[in-house]
Design a binder for these strands. Structure first.
Lengths: 208, 208
DNA sequence: GGAAGTTAATCAATCGTTTGATTAATTTTG
DNA sequence: CAAAATTAATCAAACGATTGATTAACTTCC
């Protein structure tokens, strides 16, 4: 018949991610997920075993997507500074294209409980960190970068982006702008990239 | 008798804050709060009306405490850079002395729901933002600072600190350090302050 | 004695999960 | 090929447990 083959499994994942982002993991009930996805409640346990199973699956898919998006930045042709700039650009774009998920990820990361999720998120993040660490360290070693606190510089790069996503009203408190509006998002992206590239250039390469 | 006058009201507040920090607002039950504080469950509603009332009271007390701690930085004697450095020092100390609360605050801030709390936190934060904004803007106006994206610089300062608190393993992933250990905390504080002061000095005052 | 503080018991509502039955699709078999 | 057997997907209903909140009785203290 009219085989409008709606993939309920996928519908559950998408509805759950939306709800987890909006109201948090604990704040979202399986009944809400079922209603939002148009699936029966039992389908959640049928496909994912449990509510937490849904969450884990969302994380797995996202992290896998992120990892595959990780480009090979280490072309020997370009300088450490250029590599860093590309990482910043990629990182800003990635996170600002998935603001809701990124907020959720940080929320769960800040919970001491749920150790499985914590480790999963941590591992995914530490990979990016090591990438940035190697770039900055190599720049220091070949003398193009100043000797700086590498881990703190990384905290600055990641923290700046996260701050923009989590508290956008803090960046432009007066205006009624919206990260969901593509026009506003584009503008914020450009500002963030320009700022971080400028900041790192000045801080890492200015000879005192 | 041994009138070790235990203030149940205060005990509830302290237990609730501890639990909210560890397991989140939704993840903490009133029964847990009662057990942890040694009070009867009805005491929670007797003193605070509701579970959310406890949360609001915690926020109110914390924010009030923070506001009173806000020193008058605007002595005309010192330069904009010096003012900024003092703000950084104060901000790092304040947040790293209340890491658990700060984590909880950010978690709640990242939830679209609970608008009352959202506004309360936002207002408390925007006050600090305006302070930093005024300092940087005045520095730009009198020519001692470069023309920078002020809001992005603020995002960098706040984001860096938050990043350290929320994901400490990202700062020192290899070592088994602990922000609850006073020795480690002191070290991280000093590194964060030194880094942010150095960063802002170089970025804001280096003539291109 | 009366207000404030405290308690155990209980409330309706909601939680995540499970059940048994039913339909739809696929595979096996004669 | 077609009937039978098997598997996958879906459903409404209900499960026991837990939720935040409230009640009414009791104690403490001024």
């Amino acid at each position: 018949m009219k085989t409008e083959k709606v993939d309920k499994r996928q519908a559950i994942l998408e509805a759950a991610e939306k709800l987890f982002c909006e109201t948090g993991y604990e704040g979202t009930s399986t009944r809400q997920i079922a209603k939002e996805s148009g699936a029966n409640m039992a389908m959640i346990n049928y496909y994912f075993g449990s509510k937490e199973g849904v969450f884990v699956e969302i994380m797995n898919e996202r992290i896998a997507g992120f990892a595959s998006q990780l480009k090979i930045i280490n072309e020997d042709k370009i300088s450490a500074l250029e590599k860093l700039h590309r990482v910043i650009e990629g990182y800003v774009n990635r996170i600002l294209n998935n603001t809701a998920f990124h907020k959720m990820m940080h929320r769960e990361l800040s919970l001491t409980q749920r150790p499985a999720m914590y480790d999963k998120i941590k591992d995914a993040m530490s990979h990016n960190m090591q990438l940035i660490d190697r770039i900055i360290t190599s720049g220091i070693e070949d003398g193009t970068f100043n000797k700086v606190d590498v881990r703190m510089v990384i905290a600055t790069i990641m923290g700046t982006i996260t701050n923009i996503v989590i508290a956008p009203q803090k960046v432009m408190p007066c205006s009624n702008f919206d990260l969901n509006d593509p026009k506003d998002k584009k503008m914020i992206k450009e500002r963030a990239i320009a700022h971080l590239q400028d900041l790192t250039t000045v801080y890492l390469t200015t000879k005192k």
